[in-house]
Protein backbone atom coordinates (compact mmCIF):
# COMPACT_ATOMS: atom_id res chain seq x y z
CA UNK A 1 0.00 0.00 0.00
CA UNK A 2 1.10 3.52 -0.71
CA UNK A 3 1.59 5.81 2.26
CA UNK A 4 -1.41 7.92 1.26
CA UNK A 5 -3.65 4.85 1.34
CA UNK A 6 -2.31 3.81 4.74
CA UNK A 7 -3.09 7.24 6.15
CA UNK A 8 -6.53 7.40 4.58
CA UNK A 9 -7.43 3.96 5.87
CA UNK A 10 -6.37 4.83 9.43
CA UNK A 11 -8.27 8.12 9.27
CA UNK A 12 -11.43 6.39 8.02
CA UNK A 13 -11.14 3.83 10.79
CA UNK A 14 -10.47 6.44 13.50
CA UNK A 15 -13.14 9.00 12.61
CA UNK A 16 -16.30 7.08 13.71
CA UNK A 17 -14.71 6.45 17.13
CA UNK A 18 -14.32 10.19 17.62
CA UNK A 19 -17.92 11.16 16.76
CA UNK A 20 -19.22 11.30 20.36
CA UNK A 21 -16.18 13.40 21.19
CA UNK A 22 -16.94 15.74 18.30
CA UNK A 23 -20.35 16.40 19.87
CA UNK A 24 -19.05 16.58 23.43
CA UNK A 25 -15.97 18.69 22.72
CA UNK A 26 -17.78 21.16 20.51
CA UNK A 27 -20.30 21.67 23.25
CA UNK A 28 -17.85 21.88 26.16
CA UNK A 29 -15.21 23.74 24.14
CA UNK A 30 -17.83 26.22 22.98
CA UNK A 31 -18.95 26.76 26.58
CA UNK A 32 -15.33 27.29 27.63
CA UNK A 33 -14.59 29.77 24.82
CA UNK A 34 -17.76 31.66 25.62
CA UNK A 35 -16.88 31.78 29.32
CA UNK A 36 -13.47 33.24 28.44
CA UNK A 37 -15.18 35.78 26.22
CA UNK A 38 -17.64 36.99 28.86
CA UNK A 39 -14.79 37.05 31.41
CA UNK A 40 -13.16 39.69 29.22
CA UNK A 41 -10.45 37.74 27.39
CA UNK A 42 -9.63 37.99 23.69
CA UNK A 43 -10.20 34.85 21.56
CA UNK A 44 -6.41 34.41 21.48
CA UNK A 45 -6.48 33.17 25.11
CA UNK A 46 -8.82 30.19 24.66
CA UNK A 47 -7.08 29.42 21.36
CA UNK A 48 -3.60 29.28 22.93
CA UNK A 49 -4.81 27.55 26.08
CA UNK A 50 -6.80 24.86 24.26
CA UNK A 51 -3.73 24.05 22.16
CA UNK A 52 -1.09 24.21 24.92
CA UNK A 53 -2.93 22.86 27.95
CA UNK A 54 -5.51 20.69 26.15
CA UNK A 55 -7.21 19.55 29.33
CA UNK A 56 -10.82 20.65 29.73
CA UNK A 57 -11.25 20.71 33.48
CA UNK A 58 -7.99 22.58 34.11
CA UNK A 59 -8.84 25.13 31.41
CA UNK A 60 -12.14 25.93 33.12
CA UNK A 61 -10.32 26.34 36.44
CA UNK A 62 -7.67 28.47 34.71
CA UNK A 63 -10.34 31.04 33.83
CA UNK A 64 -10.74 31.87 37.51
CA UNK A 65 -6.97 31.66 38.06
CA UNK A 66 -6.44 34.31 35.38
CA UNK A 67 -9.02 36.55 37.02
CA UNK A 68 -7.33 36.44 40.44
CA UNK A 69 -3.95 37.63 41.65
CA UNK A 70 -0.79 35.94 40.28
CA UNK A 71 -0.04 32.85 42.39
CA UNK A 72 2.47 30.59 40.59
CA UNK A 73 2.92 27.97 43.29
CA UNK A 74 -0.80 27.60 43.84
CA UNK A 75 -1.30 27.34 40.08
CA UNK A 76 1.18 24.46 39.80
CA UNK A 77 -0.26 22.58 42.79
CA UNK A 78 -3.81 23.00 41.51
CA UNK A 79 -2.84 21.95 37.97
CA UNK A 80 -0.96 18.86 39.19
CA UNK A 81 -3.89 17.84 41.38
CA UNK A 82 -6.41 18.16 38.57
CA UNK A 83 -4.18 16.43 36.02
CA UNK A 84 -2.62 13.69 38.16
CA UNK A 85 -4.89 11.04 36.64
CA UNK A 86 -2.86 11.24 33.41
CA UNK A 87 -0.07 9.37 35.23
CA UNK A 88 -2.33 6.32 35.21
CA UNK A 89 -3.05 6.75 31.50
CA UNK A 90 0.65 6.85 30.76
CA UNK A 91 1.32 3.67 32.74
CA UNK A 92 -1.53 1.95 30.87
CA UNK A 93 -0.31 3.11 27.46
CA UNK A 94 3.42 2.29 27.90
CA UNK A 95 3.10 -0.82 25.73
CA UNK A 96 0.68 0.50 23.13
CA UNK A 97 2.66 3.66 22.44
CA UNK A 98 5.98 1.81 22.35
CA UNK A 99 8.08 2.31 19.22
CA UNK A 100 5.84 4.94 17.66
CA UNK A 101 8.77 7.18 16.70
CA UNK A 102 8.05 10.88 16.28
CA UNK A 103 4.32 10.23 16.61
CA UNK A 104 4.85 9.22 20.22
CA UNK A 105 5.63 12.76 21.28
CA UNK A 106 2.33 14.03 19.92
CA UNK A 107 0.38 11.03 21.24
CA UNK A 108 1.61 11.64 24.79
CA UNK A 109 1.24 15.41 24.52
CA UNK A 110 -2.39 15.08 23.38
CA UNK A 111 -3.35 12.24 25.74
CA UNK A 112 -6.59 13.62 27.18
CA UNK A 113 -9.20 11.45 28.97
CA UNK A 114 -11.12 10.85 25.76
CA UNK A 115 -8.21 10.03 23.44
CA UNK A 116 -6.70 7.73 26.05
CA UNK A 117 -10.02 5.92 26.51
CA UNK A 118 -10.53 5.35 22.79
CA UNK A 119 -6.95 4.42 22.01
CA UNK A 120 -6.83 2.01 24.93
CA UNK A 121 -10.11 0.20 24.16
CA UNK A 122 -10.53 0.39 20.35
CA UNK A 123 -10.35 -2.87 18.42
CA UNK A 124 -8.13 -1.81 15.57
CA UNK A 125 -8.40 -4.11 12.51
CA UNK A 126 -5.22 -5.98 11.50
CA UNK A 127 -4.85 -4.12 8.20
CA UNK A 128 -5.03 -0.65 9.79
CA UNK A 129 -1.79 0.98 10.90
CA UNK A 130 -2.00 1.28 14.70
CA UNK A 131 0.29 4.28 15.00
CA UNK A 132 -1.67 6.34 12.51
CA UNK A 133 -4.97 5.26 14.07
CA UNK A 134 -3.81 6.53 17.50
CA UNK A 135 -2.46 9.65 15.84
CA UNK A 136 -5.70 10.53 14.03
CA UNK A 137 -7.86 9.85 17.08
CA UNK A 138 -5.68 12.24 19.10
CA UNK A 139 -5.48 14.84 16.34
CA UNK A 140 -9.22 14.80 15.58
CA UNK A 141 -10.08 15.06 19.28
CA UNK A 142 -7.76 18.00 19.78
CA UNK A 143 -9.03 19.76 16.65
CA UNK A 144 -12.62 19.44 17.93
CA UNK A 145 -11.66 20.96 21.26
CA UNK A 146 -9.64 23.82 19.78
CA UNK A 147 -12.25 24.68 17.15
CA UNK A 148 -15.06 24.48 19.74
CA UNK A 149 -13.22 26.87 22.06
CA UNK A 150 -12.48 29.25 19.22
CA UNK A 151 -16.08 29.24 17.97
CA UNK A 152 -17.37 29.80 21.50
CA UNK A 153 -15.05 32.74 22.01
CA UNK A 154 -16.03 34.34 18.69
CA UNK A 155 -19.72 33.50 18.35
CA UNK A 156 -20.78 32.51 21.88
CA UNK A 157 -23.43 35.19 22.22
CA UNK A 158 -25.17 34.21 18.98
CA UNK A 159 -26.34 30.80 20.21
CA UNK A 160 -29.72 30.55 21.86
CA UNK A 161 -31.01 27.00 21.46
CA UNK A 162 -31.37 24.98 24.60
CA UNK A 163 -28.32 22.76 25.07
CA UNK A 164 -28.87 22.13 28.78
CA UNK A 165 -27.68 18.65 29.68
CA UNK A 166 -25.62 18.09 26.52
CA UNK A 167 -22.47 17.80 28.62
CA UNK A 168 -23.81 14.42 29.77
CA UNK A 169 -22.47 13.06 26.49
CA UNK A 170 -19.02 12.73 28.09
CA UNK A 171 -20.43 10.80 31.06
CA UNK A 172 -22.37 8.53 28.68
CA UNK A 173 -19.21 7.92 26.66
CA UNK A 174 -17.18 6.91 29.70
CA UNK A 175 -20.05 4.67 30.82
CA UNK A 176 -20.03 2.76 27.50
CA UNK A 177 -16.25 2.52 27.54
CA UNK A 178 -16.46 1.20 31.08
CA UNK A 179 -19.15 -1.30 30.00
CA UNK A 180 -16.93 -2.50 27.13
CA UNK A 181 -14.00 -2.96 29.52
CA UNK A 182 -16.27 -4.78 31.99
CA UNK A 183 -17.56 -7.19 29.34
CA UNK A 184 -14.03 -7.92 28.10
CA UNK A 185 -12.90 -9.19 31.48
CA UNK A 186 -14.21 -11.99 33.63
CA UNK A 187 -13.04 -10.67 37.00
CA UNK A 188 -13.72 -7.16 38.16
CA UNK A 189 -11.50 -6.47 41.13
CA UNK A 190 -9.90 -3.46 39.46
CA UNK A 191 -13.19 -1.84 38.41
CA UNK A 192 -14.64 -2.30 41.89
CA UNK A 193 -11.45 -0.94 43.49
CA UNK A 194 -11.79 2.13 41.26
CA UNK A 195 -15.40 2.73 42.25
CA UNK A 196 -14.81 2.11 45.95
CA UNK A 197 -11.75 4.37 46.14
CA UNK A 198 -13.43 7.06 44.06
CA UNK A 199 -16.67 7.14 46.00
CA UNK A 200 -15.05 6.95 49.45
CA UNK A 201 -12.51 9.67 48.56
CA UNK A 202 -15.28 11.86 47.13
CA UNK A 203 -17.34 11.55 50.31
CA UNK A 204 -14.35 12.18 52.59
CA UNK A 205 -12.45 14.87 50.65
CA UNK A 206 -15.15 16.52 48.54
CA UNK A 207 -15.30 17.16 44.78
CA UNK A 208 -12.35 19.59 44.67
CA UNK A 209 -9.63 17.37 46.10
CA UNK A 210 -10.70 13.74 45.93
CA UNK A 211 -8.76 12.58 42.86
CA UNK A 212 -5.31 12.12 44.41
CA UNK A 213 -6.60 10.27 47.51
CA UNK A 214 -8.73 8.14 45.17
CA UNK A 215 -5.68 7.30 43.02
CA UNK A 216 -3.68 6.47 46.15
CA UNK A 217 -6.51 4.19 47.27
CA UNK A 218 -6.52 2.37 43.93
CA UNK A 219 -2.74 1.87 44.03
CA UNK A 220 -2.93 0.62 47.63
CA UNK A 221 -5.69 -1.89 46.83
CA UNK A 222 -3.95 -3.14 43.68
CA UNK A 223 -0.68 -3.44 45.61
CA UNK A 224 -2.12 -5.23 48.65
CA UNK A 225 -4.22 -7.66 46.61
CA UNK A 226 -1.71 -8.18 43.81
CA UNK A 227 -1.39 -11.95 44.37
CA UNK A 228 -5.16 -12.35 44.32
CA UNK A 229 -5.63 -10.11 41.28
CA UNK A 230 -2.94 -11.89 39.28
CA UNK A 231 -4.46 -15.25 40.15
CA UNK A 232 -7.90 -13.99 39.07
CA UNK A 233 -6.41 -12.69 35.87
CA UNK A 234 -4.86 -16.07 35.02
CA UNK A 235 -8.01 -18.05 35.76
CA UNK A 236 -10.03 -15.46 33.85
CA UNK A 237 -7.87 -16.02 30.80
CA UNK A 238 -7.95 -19.79 31.13
CA UNK A 239 -11.73 -19.99 30.95
CA UNK A 240 -11.92 -17.96 27.76
Amino acid sequence: MKKKDVLLKALKCAFPYTLPILAGFWFLGFAYGYLMNVSGFSFVYPLVMSICIFGGSLEFVAVSMLLSAFAPLQTVIMALMIQARHLFYGISMLDKYRGMGWKKFYLVYAMCDESFSINFTADIPQDVDRGWFYFFVSLLDQSYWVSGALLGALFGDLVHFNTKGLDFIMTAMFVTIFAEQWMKEKRHFSELAGFASGVIALVVFGPQRFMIPAMAGILALLYIFRRLVEKMWETGEDTE
Binding site: R85, F88, Y89, I91, S92, D113, S117, F120, T171, F174, V175, I177, F178, Q181, W182, E185, H188, F189, S190, E191, L192, A193, G194, F195, S197, G198, V199, L202, M211, A214, M215, I218, L222, V229, W233
Partner: peptide, 13 residues
Protein backbone atom coordinates in the same frame (compact mmCIF):
# COMPACT_ATOMS: atom_id res chain seq x y z
CA UNK B 1 -5.03 -3.90 35.72
CA UNK B 2 -5.19 -0.11 36.12
CA UNK B 3 -7.48 0.70 33.17
CA UNK B 4 -10.53 -0.96 34.76
CA UNK B 5 -10.07 1.14 37.88
CA UNK B 6 -9.33 4.26 35.84
CA UNK B 7 -12.55 4.00 33.81
CA UNK B 8 -14.52 3.50 37.03
CA UNK B 9 -12.81 6.53 38.54
CA UNK B 10 -13.59 8.62 35.43
CA UNK B 11 -17.30 7.93 35.89
CA UNK B 12 -17.08 9.05 39.53
CA UNK B 13 -15.17 12.12 38.30
Amino acid sequence: VLPGAVFALLIVY
